[in-house]
Amino acid sequence: MSAKRWVESILLQFPMRIALGGVFIFAAFTKISNIQAFAFAIKGFKILDPDKHGHLIISAAYTMPWVEMIAGVLLVLGLWTRAATVTIGLMLVFFIAALLHVIFDPTIDADCSCFGDIQFKCDAAVGWCQVIRDVIMLIPVGYLLWRGGGILALDTLRERNCTPKDAIQDAKPGSPVAEDSFRG
């Protein structure tokens, strides 16, 4: 492994994974600790009619924070890094769309509740600040999708132990493993 890849991992990929994953773990924790308030927050966005689709709002209130938590933990560990990054990216895109829906509909007056009742850099009321914050978080998402989790990720360790190339090197000539690897 080249020194350049080590430098990139230590200076870019590892800090990005920790920061992005940490933000999502924190956001998930604040929501999990008060699911009721998060359900009210989803209702306040008025994307779904609570009279007709209340069950979906409650399902989302229980599921979304746990998806955030699992994706955040996987990203910090560097395990399933691309899948976790895509999940976080999709959630950010969804959050941005929901925020724009509130911003452009003057009849909706919703609180973000992005980090529970804690204001992280922005006011509680939905506004452009939250949109900009989410767009900024898409930058490391894009980078990690492009470059992967880096050397300091469990994925690297896993791939090193499991790649066909290594399997070929480890396997004796003529063994089934080597044959399968050559066939692709």
């Binding site: 999990i32 699911i35 399902s59 229980y62 599921t63 979304m64 924070p65 746990w66 998806v67 955030e68 938590m69 699992i70 994706a71 996987l74 399933w80 691309r82 899948a83 976790a84 895509v86 999940t87 999709l90």
Partner: peptide, 22 residues
């Protein structure tokens, strides 16, 4: 394909955890 499968697995695990939480 692996990434898509991973995303679905994360969402599925999140759903199961949410059901357990409820």
């Amino acid at each position: 394909v692996q990434t898509i499968a991973g995303v679905l697995a994360i969402v599925g695990l999140g759903y199961i955890a949410g059901v357990g939480h409820s």
